[in-house]
Design a protein around this nucleic acid. Sequence first.
DNA 1: ATGTCC
Length: 466
Amino acid sequence: MIKAITNRDLVDAGIPGGSYLPSLTARGNRLLEDHSREDVIQRLKAIYKAEYTVPIVPLLEEGPELKVNLEAGNEAEQANLEACVTTMREAARTPTVRAAAILPDACPSGPAGTITVGGVIATENAIHPGMHSADICCSMMATNLGQVDPRAAMDAAFRHVRFGPLARNTPDRLTLDPQLLKEFEQNPFMREQKILHNAEVQLGTQGDGNHFYFIGISEQTGDTYIVSHHGSRGVGGHLYKLGMKEATKYTGSCSPETLPQNVWIEAESQTGQDYWEALQLARAWTKYNHSSVHDLIARDLGVTGQDRFWNEHNFVFKRNGLYYHAKGATPAWEGFADDNDSAGRTIIPLNMSQPVLIVKGRDNPDALGFSPHGAGRNMSRKAHKRTLEGRTMDEVFTEETAHIDARFQSGKIDTSELPSAYKNAESVIDQIDRMALATVVDRILPHGSIMAGECDAPWKQRRAAR
DNA sequence: ATGTCC
C-alpha cells in the first residue's frame, strides 16, 4: 500500500501554501492508482504552475529597435540625444512594447527607463498610464477670429483665462455639459469624487508650467487666431493616479521586473476597457475646457470663432491593433480621432516669441506616424536658470519678449518659460521638414502670450519654509 | 503637470 499524499508533502515539494492545497492533494491521491509517488508529486507541481499561478513575463532582453528622429547640433544636444536613447531603450524592454520612437523635441523626463517627452511607445494589449503621462490629453486648440485687432484679442483673452494652480471656475461663468457629467458618473474611474469635483471647479482653467494662451496672425490670411495649450487639469491628474494604482497591482502579479513607471493595465480586461473609456472622457472634458474659453473670448469680441481645430499630444491612440502612447508627440495620420480637423491640420507651438506651426502630418512610419509637439528643452529648468545668473529677471524678460506682448497672469515672470529655455526653433522646423514628419501649411505669427507666471501656491511656500 | 502621499 502506497502512503497517501498530504498537504505537507506538497509544501515540502516547493508548492506554496494556500487554500488550493486540499484539492491538489485529492487529485494527487487519485493519480496514485496509476503512477509512482515521485511522479505524482512532479505532476502536481506542474498542475499548480499551470492552473494556480499567473505566468511571469520577463523583461525583453532587448526591446524593439528605437527609431531615432533627432539630430544633435552641438554638445548639449548630443548629451540630450544620448540620454534620450538610453532611457527609451530601457523603457522599450517592458514586455508589452512592440515599437518605440523619439522625435526632434525629445528630452528625458523622470527616472531612468521612463519614456521621454517627445517619445512614442506602441504596445500590445496594454495601456501604460506612465507613458501617456499625468497631464492626460495635454492638447492644442486654434480658433480663427477673422479680421480682429490682435490687441483687442489679447485683452479679451486676458479677461477670460484663469491660470495658476489655485484658479477656479464660477457657475455664473461656465457650467459643465450635464450629459458629460452623466457619463463621468457611469464610469468606475471618473465617478471618483475628486474627479467630479475638479470637473466642476476647474472648468475653464489652464493650470501652470508650459501651458499658455497665444494670440497671433495667420501668415496665409492675416486673420487673428487664438491658440491654447493645456490638459485635463486635476481631472486627468487624479485619473492618472487611479490608473497607476491599478497598473501597479496588475503588473506586480505578472511582471515584477517591470520598472514602477512602466506598469500597465491589460487593455482587453474589463478594467482596461473602463480605463480606455475614462481616457476618452478626460479628453472630452479637455476639449470642452479649451472651446468654452475660446467661445467666451470670441463672444466678447463680437465674432463667432467657428473655424476651429484641435489635437491632443499626451494621449493613447489605438491603431492597427496596437496602443500608441504619445508623451509629447502629435498624431500625424488622418483620422487619429473622430473629431480631428477635416483638412488634417494639427498644431505645433515652438516658444512664445516664435510662430505657432499649423501642419499636416505626413504619417511617417519611421516616426511611428507622429510629429513633434513643440520645440522641447535641451536642459532642465534649473540648469536653464543657472545660465541666466548675474542678470535681473526684468532684463532677461525685456530682451527675450521685445517684439511680443508677453503677460504672466500671476504678475511674476517665469523665466523657465522664456524663449531661451527652449531648443532652437529653426533647428526643430528644419528637422520636421528633412525627416518628413509634417508639412507646414501656415504659421501663426506671434502677437502676444499669456502664461501662469511664478505662483505662490501654499504647498510651494511650505516647501520653501523647510 | 497634478492641491505634486489623504
